[in-house]
């Protein structure tokens, strides 16, 4: 230790300013190297994420052509939304789609995961088979689904007549169009959530079940008091994610129903797409985007706060 200090002292005596300068230089060069590593990501994020996000906000106060020429129009785009005949319908559709999706696809993966966890054979078969649709591009699966739903020769109506039930119009029926689309959306996504729940279930120590069994808890009570509490945090996170992703749905209604019949399956993103690229009103489309993000953020925030309150009450 002593020799070490004396070494430094010597160097300080010989070159009094060299050490601080060297330190500053090595500090600076380390910063420069660090930022060189960051640079590609910063540039690309800036160009295709941060800038367009800021631009979305800016464009919502402008009139914009397809080539990007823009003139300020104040809040005209937002004022126009008030008059948009599709507005009410889209907001309603948004709620109905979210409700259908939660009804058909929220509990299903939880139940499946619990049942598959209990399998003593073929666990990996079930794990992969429900997951298969999630890797297939929707725009290709849609080709098959529209034939399944076909009122004349589709498999669903053939099944109904086989069972002696009347044919349905499915995607052309104002009442059935939404649930029909949600079935496709659920088919394409529930495998992912099932796997997530399943991997969470694998973390539960078996001793907990053994202890519960020794205490005389019935199988259902064990699910109620051991399994479900373990899943709750993930369930509540996946609830938000599911609602957010359903509200943003585009490809299924665009390719299967094109928003119809009437405006039954007109979703916000489909509306944004049409306004931007069919009516070439990019500013108005951006105003819709901004409103949609605000709605989604507000939903997440309210959900988070309510969840936090409930958990606090439970833990008190």
């Amino acid at each position: 230790m002593a020799s070490n200090t004396s070494y430094h002292d010597n160097e300080l005596l010989m070159r009094p300013r060299a050490v601080p300068l060297q330190r500053i230089w090595s500090f600076l060069s380390r910063q420069i190297v660090a930022y060189l590593f960051l640079l590609p990501a910063i540039l690309i994020f800036g160009l295709v994420a941060w800038y367009p996000i800021a631009r979305a906000f800016e464009m919502s106060f402008q009139q914009v052509s397809l080539t990007g020429e823009s003139t300020d129009v104040g809040t005209a785009n937002y004022d126009l939304m008030e008059l948009d005949p599709a507005r009410e319908i889209i907001l309603e559709n948004m709620l109905e789609f979210a409700s259908w999706s939660v009804a058909l696809g929220y509990a299903l993966p939880v139940i499946l995961a619990i049942l598959i966890r209990e399998m003593r054979h073929a666990k990996s078969f079930f794990r992969i088979v429900y997951f298969l649709p999630t890797v297939v591009p929707i725009s290709i699966a849609v080709i098959v689904w529209r034939f399944i739903y076909d009122p004349d020769a589709g498999a669903l109506n053939e099944l109904l007549s086989f069972l002696g039930l009347p044919d349905q119009l499915w995607l052309y029926d104002p009442k059935l169009a939404k649930p029909s689309l949600v079935v496709v959306m659920t088919w394409a996504s529930f495998g992912t959530t099932t796997l997530i729940y399943l991997s969470s279930l694998m973390e539960i120590p078996t001793e907990l079940y053994e202890a519960a069994e020794l205490d005389g808890a019935s199988p259902l009570q064990r699910i109620r008091h051991v399994t479900l509490p373990h899943l709750f945090p993930i369930m509540s996170l996946l609830f938000v994610l599911q609602v957010i992703s359903v509200v943003q749905v585009f490809t299924e209604p665009f390719l299967l129903t094109n928003g119809g019949p009437g405006r039954e399956t007109l979703t916000p993103v489909l509306h944004i797409y049409r306004r931007a690229f069919e009516r070439i009103d990019l500013g108005y489309a951006s105003a819709w985007s901004v409103v949609l993000v605000v709605i989604l953020l507000a939903f997440s925030l309210v959900y988070y706060l309510v969840n936090y309150r409930i958990r606090k009450i439970y833990s008190d």
């Binding site: 295709v48 080539t67 990007g68 943003q248 585009f250 931007a276």
Partner: peptide, 12 residues
């Protein structure tokens, strides 16, 4: 969400 900026992304 990405849909919030696909229009300005296209313009960019």
């Amino acid at each position: 969400p990405a849909i919030a900026y696909f229009v300005p992304l296209f313009v960019t």
